[in-house]
Design a binder for these strands. Structure first.
Length: 474
DNA sequence: TGAAATGTTGGGGCG
DNA sequence: ACGCCCCAACATTTC
């Protein structure tokens, strides 16, 4: 039945290149119906955050454009995925569904359910791996357990059989006689309007597969060489900035793996970051409670403070610590934050303010364009010290030292905290120590034009160590 | 993918 | 010349 159409359900794989579900489906020679479902209904689904929705809005346009170039188009549906799939199968007479796997606990449960439900109706389901180098069940210790330490995990990945070459995009997709009707993207209201808090996103980001490939090329050509050292400098643009593309699958790790020349300086360091992403996905698969529960149960007794004012100051970038505030404002203005500054600001929330990492995780998840359950939850638990292969709790970042070390000329701080931009370099990371005259000349009035520190770091550090003493041992 | 406290070393000033 | 002190620089330990 070559005329019976086939559904290709896009989820976090919004690309044509190296997309096994799409490639295998298109090779059948049957008409293809590409589908995206916005599911805010199924219980248990963490509603996609605001920044991610903005990204998705643009990505779906890009995907639709790419599909049209090969003779197809994207069908949009909104609602519980299970119901929308059933409807579309009914409408089109399709007898099979192709998708690439998701690994978030909710998605695993949903897909398992749907697979069963469709099989019962005699519908074939074919699932593939597009998001990872290895399936989470493929990498295990000699004892057959999942790795909980990064270094041996990554070594095992590097020693595993080479990854298959990325698949080329299909040259052409066969259209069904009639495309099923879909929603209009703009009716989904994925981007903010009043107020348009994403205005600056437009200058910063170009979602979509083409942009992802161009960015990777540019990174490998110009920036990877300095990556090993430069990656820690938020004042420079030396990181790949591929994270949102990776999250939505506009590029996949296999493509990166094969594009990188490992002989190049910086290449291994960069690939190991892809390794951390892989590690986080595997951890989330094996320990699905990671977004909600401490991986180390000892932390369940940690005396977190209830401090709504502190949380708000942190969220708004008004802590009085310039490097923290710059990071939090970069996040708000651009939907992204440099990794080094993520660590500094997370350390500040957890250790200086003693606020539960889960509140930080939730804020990042809502405001990052690259919000990714696996990376975000593991990252926060890493900083908190409650996670796998985590930083010890007593590693407490000093926001002044970190600022001076990684933003030595204050370029980053001045970009995002303009009200202190006129301060000399010497005081840019600690305005409260500047002589009155210097502050006056720079037009800075503490607690007026810019906050005084909401906590004293030295005493906050002592307080954090005391709090940690009270829990101890798993 | 820290920072602070504490310990050690060695050069120079000086009586 | 020598011992003593001071202290910066580096190393180690501790949180």
């Amino acid at each position: 039945m070559a005329d019976t159409p086939v559904l290709v359900w896009f989820r976090q794989d919004l690309r044509l290149t190296d997309n096994p579900a799409l490639s295998v489906a298109s090779a059948i020679g049957a008409p293809i119906i590409p589908l995206y479902v916005l599911d805010d209904e199924t219980p248990g689904n963490l509603r996609m955050g605001g920044a991610s929705r903005w990204w998705l809005d643009h990505s779906l346009v890009a995907l639709d454009t790419s599909l049209r170039q090969i003779g197809s188009e994207l069908v949009l549906r909104r609602g519980a995925a299970e119901r929308e799939l059933a409807r579309l199968l009914e409408e089109t007479g399709a007898r099979s569904v192709y998708w690439n796997r998701c690994y978030e606990p909710f998605a695993v449960a949903r897909d398992t359910r749907i697979k069963q439900f469709l099989s019962d109706k005699g519908i074939d389901v074919h699932s593939f791996n597009a998001a990872l180098l290895f399936e989470p069940w493929e990498i295990e210790t000699k004892a057959g357990d999942p790795y909980k330490v990064f270094t041996p995990f990554w070594r095992a990945c590097l020693n595993a059989p080479p990854r298959p070459d990325p698949l080329p995009p299909p040259a052409e997709l066969i259209c069904p006689d009639e495309f099923p009707k879909g929603d209009r993207l703009k009716d989904w209201d994925l981007s903010p309007t009043q107020p348009n808090w994403a205005a600056e996103f437009e200058d910063e980001w170009y979602p979509g597969e083409d942009a992802a490939l161009a960015l990777l090329d540019d990174f490998l050509e110009r920036r990877v060489t300095d990556y090993a050292t430069g990656r820690d400098r938020p004042d420079k643009r030396l990181t790949s900035r591929l994270s949102p593309y990776l999250h939505f699958g506009e590029i996949g790790p296999r493509q990166i793996w094969h594009a990188v020349d490992r002989k190049q300086p910086g290449a291994d360091k960069f690939l190991s970051e892809i390794g951390w992403r892989e590690f986080c996905y595997h951890l989330l698969f094996h320990f699905p409670s990671i977004p909600a529960e401490n991986l180390r149960p000892a932390f369940d007794d940690f005396p977190w403070r209830d401090d709504p004012d502190g949380l708000r100051a942190w969220q708004q970038g008004k802590t009085g610590y310039p490097i923290v505030d710059a990071g939090m404002r970069e996040l708000w203005r651009t939907g992204w934050m440099h990794n080094r500054v993520r660590m500094i600001s997370a350390s500040f929330l957890i250790k200086d303010l003693l606020i539960d990492w889960r509140l930080g995780e939730a804020w990042f998840r809502d405001t990052l364009v690259d919000a990714d359950l696996a990376n975000n939850a593991c990252g926060w638990q890493w900083v908190a010290g409650s996670g796998a292969d985590a930083a010890p709790f007593f590693r407490i970042f000093n926001p002044v030292t970190q600022g001076q070390k990684f933003d030595p000329d204050g370029v980053y701080v001045r970009r995002f905290v303009p009200e202190i931009a006129s301060l000399p370099d010497k005081w840019i990371h600690r305005p409260w120590d500047a002589p009155d005259q210097v502050l006056t000349e720079a037009g800075v009035i503490l607690n007026d034009t810019y906050p005084a520190p909401i906590v004293d770091h030295a005493s906050a550090r002592t307080r954090a160590l005391e709090a940690f003493k009270s829990i101890k041992s798993d």
